[in-house]
Amino acid sequence: RPMNAFMVWAKDERKRLAQQNPDLHNAVLSKMLGKAWKELNAAEKRPFVEEAERLRVQHLRDHPNYK
Rank of each mutant, 00 (worst) to 15 (best):
R1A: 04
R1T: 01
R1C: 05
R1M: 01
R1G: 03
P2S: 11
P2C: 06
P2R: 10
P2Q: 12
M3D: 12
M3E: 09
M3K: 04
M3I: 14
M3F: 05
M3Q: 07
M3L: 09
M3P: 15
N4R: 00
N4F: 01
N4M: 02
N4T: 10
N4S: 10
A5H: 01
A5F: 06
F6G: 02
F6D: 02
F6T: 01
F6Y: 09
F6W: 02
F6P: 03
F6V: 00
F6Q: 04
M7A: 10
M7C: 12
M7P: 00
M7H: 15
M7Q: 15
M7E: 14
M7V: 07
M7S: 13
V8T: 04
V8S: 02
V8M: 14
V8E: 01
V8L: 15
V8Q: 01
V8Y: 11
V8W: 01
V8F: 11
W9T: 01
W9V: 01
A10C: 04
A10Y: 02
A10R: 02
A10M: 04
A10E: 09
K11D: 05
K11C: 07
K11H: 08
K11A: 09
D12V: 08
D12P: 05
D12A: 14
D12H: 06
E13L: 03
E13Q: 09
E13M: 09
E13K: 05
E13T: 04
E13R: 06
E13G: 01
E13N: 15
E13V: 00
E13C: 06
E13W: 05
R14P: 00
R14N: 01
K15M: 02
K15E: 07
K15H: 13
K15A: 06
K15F: 04
K15C: 02
R16C: 04
R16M: 10
R16Q: 01
R16E: 02
R16T: 04
R16D: 00
L17W: 01
L17A: 00
L17D: 00
L17M: 15
A18M: 11
A18V: 13
A18S: 11
A18E: 06
A18Y: 14
A18Q: 12
A18C: 07
Q19M: 13
Q19Y: 07
Q19H: 15
Q19A: 15
Q19D: 11
Q19F: 03
Q19P: 00
Q19I: 10
Q19C: 01
Q20W: 03
Q20P: 00
Q20D: 03
Q20I: 05
Q20T: 12
Q20V: 10
Q20G: 07
N21S: 07
N21H: 15
N21C: 10
N21G: 04
N21L: 08
P22R: 03
P22V: 03
P22S: 02
P22W: 00
D23R: 08
D23E: 15
D23M: 06
D23V: 11
D23L: 01
D23G: 14
D23S: 06
L24W: 09
L24Q: 06
L24E: 05
L24V: 13
L24P: 04
L24H: 10
L24A: 11
H25R: 10
H25T: 15
H25D: 15
H25P: 15
H25V: 05
N26I: 06
N26H: 14
N26A: 14
N26P: 15
N26V: 10
N26L: 03
N26T: 11
A27I: 08
A27T: 11
A27R: 14
A27M: 08
A27V: 11
A27E: 15
A27C: 07
V28A: 15
V28R: 12
V28M: 13
V28Q: 15
V28K: 14
V28T: 14
L29M: 12
L29P: 03
L29H: 04
L29W: 01
L29R: 02
L29S: 06
L29I: 06
L29A: 05
L29N: 02
L29Q: 04
S30M: 14
S30K: 11
S30P: 06
S30N: 14
S30W: 14
K31T: 06
K31R: 11
K31S: 05
K31W: 11
K31A: 08
M32T: 04
M32A: 07
M32C: 05
M32G: 02
M32L: 09
M32E: 08
M32D: 07
L33V: 05
L33C: 03
L33P: 03
L33I: 03
L33A: 05
L33Y: 01
G34V: 15
G34F: 15
G34M: 14
G34Y: 12
G34N: 12
G34I: 14
K35R: 13
K35S: 08
K35P: 04
K35I: 03
K35T: 07
K35V: 08
K35E: 14
A36F: 04
A36S: 08
A36V: 05
A36K: 15
W37T: 04
W37F: 01
W37K: 03
W37Q: 02
W37H: 15
W37S: 07
W37C: 01
W37R: 02
W37Y: 04
K38H: 05
K38N: 11
K38M: 09
E39S: 12
E39G: 08
E39V: 06
E39Y: 12
E39L: 13
E39M: 09
E39T: 12
L40Q: 02
L40S: 04
L40P: 03
L40G: 01
L40N: 08
N41L: 06
N41K: 13
N41C: 09
A42L: 09
A42F: 04
A42M: 09
A42Y: 12
A42G: 10
A43Q: 05
A43G: 08
A43Y: 15
A43R: 10
A43L: 06
A43S: 12
E44N: 03
E44D: 12
E44V: 05
E44S: 10
E44G: 05
E44P: 00
E44Q: 09
E44H: 01
K45Q: 08
K45D: 00
K45F: 09
K45H: 01
K45I: 03
K45R: 12
R46K: 03
R46I: 07
R46W: 03
R46L: 11
R46T: 05
R46N: 04
R46E: 12
P47C: 04
P47D: 08
P47S: 05
P47W: 02
P47V: 05
P47A: 04
P47L: 03
P47I: 10
P47H: 07
F48Y: 05
F48N: 01
F48R: 02
F48G: 03
F48V: 03
F48M: 01
F48E: 09
V49F: 12
V49H: 12
V49W: 09
V49G: 02
E50F: 02
E50H: 09
E50C: 07
E50P: 04
E50A: 10
E50V: 08
E50L: 09
E50R: 07
E50D: 12
E51D: 01
E51V: 09
E51P: 03
E51K: 11
E51F: 06
E51Y: 06
E51Q: 14
E51M: 10
A52T: 03
A52V: 02
A52D: 01
A52E: 07
A52Q: 01
A52H: 01
A52L: 00
E53F: 15
E53P: 00
E53C: 07
E53L: 04
E53G: 02
E53H: 15
E53A: 10
E53K: 11
E53Q: 09
R54D: 00
R54K: 10
R54H: 06
L55D: 02
L55E: 09
L55F: 02
L55A: 07
L55T: 06
R56G: 07
R56D: 07
V57E: 12
V57C: 15
V57M: 12
V57Y: 09
V57A: 12
V57T: 14
V57R: 12
Q58A: 13
Q58I: 09
Q58V: 06
Q58G: 09
Q58D: 09
Q58F: 03
H59L: 08
H59M: 12
H59V: 10
H59Y: 13
H59G: 13
H59P: 07
L60G: 12
L60Y: 12
L60A: 11
L60K: 11
R61M: 13
R61D: 11
R61P: 07
D62A: 14
D62R: 10
D62E: 14
D62L: 08
D62H: 13
D62Y: 09
D62M: 10
H63E: 14
H63T: 10
H63P: 15
H63L: 10
P64S: 11
P64C: 14
P64R: 12
P64H: 09
P64V: 11
N65M: 08
N65G: 14
N65V: 12
N65I: 08
Y66F: 14
Y66L: 14
Y66H: 11
Y66W: 13
Y66Q: 15
Y66D: 15
Y66K: 11
Y66C: 15
K67H: 07
K67R: 14
K67V: 12
K67N: 12
K67C: 07
K67E: 14
K67W: 04
